[in-house]
Computed example of a mutant assay.
Amino acid sequence: MTSTNHDPFRFSTIAHRNHRYLSPLSRRKACELIRSLSSNLSADDIVLDAGCGKASVLRDVLCMSPARGIGVDINQNFLNEARASFQQECPADSRLSLINAPLLEHARPQEGYSAILCVGSTHAFGSFEECLRVSRGWLKPNGLLLVAEGYWKQIPSQEYLDLLGGTADEFATHAENAQLARSLGYNLVRTATSSDDEWDEYEGKYCDAMMQYLASNPDDPDAVAFTKRMQDWHSGYLQWGRATLGFGYYLLARD
């Protein structure tokens, strides 16, 4: 049976249906990073979540500060879930605005942002470097950027690059990511990396959500393609990805 569903986000939406964060991030680590970012935010400050997904990090910021938040993403399903979750977590709280639009096209506040979050969504800017450059222009003086980006733990094998559909120069090292930020006018406030446990939790739930969905929906027209895609992906994670691809968090202050 051939799929007639043209939603380009369908696979990701299903595979992430049981994730809070759409990245290998634990609640504990998220709390530590957000505490550092939000300690000085006031009710006059606006925080942008760029490529927000379910806006989970932004929702955490709003729970830990009086700031207002704007989340921008092109996956309407994720935004619907973000809105429902925030209404459940913070009933009658109107501080969260969600925008379904390409990031670079969204209407920005004239005064700029006090903080920007971009956790695993630098592609919404075009690249990690563009995220750093553009965010610096969108931030107020002394504003903070919490950005998360992949990095190579070791030189990737060609087989792994083929699976990713990527190239060896797509990522740098953790230290090189931090150095690039400094060279573009940021001061490092703190850094962190995803642990093996966080990666296993993320990738395990990713695979499990899809396989549970397919078991419950065997007649889905995408079942065969999605099964192969997920099995190939998870096998690649175990064989190459777990030892090769890291995920770094960089809390940066605009100088």
Rank of each mutant, 00 (worst) to 15 (best):
L251C: 04
E201D: 08
L245M: 04
A223E: 14
R254N: 08
Y249P: 02
G185Q: 05
E176L: 10
R242W: 05
K228Q: 15
F226D: 05
A209K: 04
D219V: 12
R229W: 13
Y213M: 14
S194A: 11
G185D: 06
D196A: 05
Q212R: 14
A223Y: 10
A223L: 12
M211K: 12
A253N: 11
Y160F: 13
S194L: 00
D200H: 02
V189Q: 08
A175V: 15
L252R: 04
A243V: 03
F247S: 05
Q239N: 13
Q212E: 15
Q179T: 10
A209E: 05
V189L: 06
S216C: 15
N187P: 05
L184C: 07
W199L: 01
L164A: 08
D200M: 04
S194N: 06
M211Q: 15
D162E: 09
D197E: 07
L180D: 04
G165Q: 06
K228A: 15
D208T: 13
N177F: 02
H174R: 09
E176N: 13
A168G: 11
E198L: 07
A209G: 07
T167G: 09
A175T: 14
W233V: 08
E159S: 09
L164C: 09
L252T: 00
R190K: 13
D197S: 06
A225N: 13
L161W: 01
Q179C: 11
M210A: 14
R190V: 12
T167H: 12
D169S: 15
V189S: 02
G246W: 00
L164K: 10
A215Q: 15
R254I: 08
L184H: 03
L161M: 03
A223T: 15
A215P: 09
A178H: 03
F247Y: 06
